[in-house]
Write a protein that binds this DNA or RNA. Sequence first.
DNA 1: CTCGTCATGTAAAGCGTTACATGATTTC
DNA 2: GAAATCATGTAACGCTTTACATGACGAG
Lengths: 201, 201
Amino acid sequence: MSKGQGALRYALLGLLAGSPGTGYALKKRFAIELADAWYAETSQIYPELARMVEDGLISEISRGARGSKTYAITDAGIDELVRWLKETEPNRASRNESLMRLFFFFLLDDDESAELFRREIRHHRETLERYKSWKEPIAKANVYHERFNLIVLDWGIRYEEGFIEWLEWTEAEAKKARKSRGLSSRKASAEASARRAARAS
Amino acid sequence: MSKGQGALRYALLGLLAGSPGTGYALKKRFAIELADAWYAETSQIYPELARMVEDGLISEISRGARGSKTYAITDAGIDELVRWLKETEPNRASRNESLMRLFFFFLLDDDESAELFRREIRHHRETLERYKSWKEPIAKANVYHERFNLIVLDWGIRYEEGFIEWLEWTEAEAKKARKSRGLSSRKASAEASARRAARAS
DNA sequence: CTCGTCATGTAAAGCGTTACATGATTTC
DNA sequence: GAAATCATGTAACGCTTTACATGACGAG
């Protein structure tokens, strides 16, 4: 089994397996249909679509206003997408910058961290509301592949609800940890840790 | 407020704020202390550490066996990390390939998708067990900044538990969706969707 | 007729992965 | 003594972002 490389190609293929569209529309569909599980700039999308036509995975089915090109997936494209799903291992390397930042909150005092928590919670509440507002329109449409979108949207909602709950719990825990410790200066804390390391080696 | 660029630098700075270490050790600490919220190859880490020494954010505090270099964060480094936390907006662009793949399961039949669900659930159960096994050792150590690692580790555990639960629910939902629909061939499904799009335009 | 949105692309710079190269030290 | 792990780095390639460039169409 090969590694999951070139995921952008398969993201586009998957969106086109749902329904045909232009490059411009595909970019927007990442945020809605894939709920940000993938994302790309137009400068990546257009060249990739051209390469996929060359490879016979998609075809240009019509031209519209403003020189727009609508692409549809081909049989070969569906086969290739299914092969990728079944035969390749997903690339699980994950990077989540805003989560990483939380690991470093031990350097902040209560006031500083409170403000960052507020920002974080606000952002996730907004995302949660957005996801919830998509639920009904998709359910109404009752299109086969959108039933699956609805299932995955459910994960987005569970995730955001769980994360908000955890953020609220965490802020209180962080406060407790800071209180039960004498040191107030971040530098004193870092220096103590450096001394510990020096003793250990 | 600038965008959250060059996050690798701050990830390294944050780890070194916890305790000093070599480039080689830092790479391993991503998986454990940051629970994969960030990650980098050594080919990225070594040059970045050299740049950070030049910029005065860290310093080489000792040399050990095999030419190893142990780095520690400087006061300027702590200031820069705290500034980054407080003054910059996190980059929230997220890519999660294995979640993206789930969006495309409407193309698979029950047997095909069952196997992929098994693989996915197995992976997340393993991750969950790994996280759980870290809880006690960290709690025992009772080092200030590790109290925060413990708090964020709690998110990892909640996340994996929630995701596994959702995966189990999802497999059943996907089966229901497939059953309530006549079509069996994926190509028939994609073609029907292409016809819908053609009518709409 | 103006503003927002639709629409397609190229170029350059920065970030991240894979492959390669080398060798010391520890553990069994 | 062999194998695993520790340890540092460079080079080439591929992926992603930012900046730039251009223009048509629709709504008000």
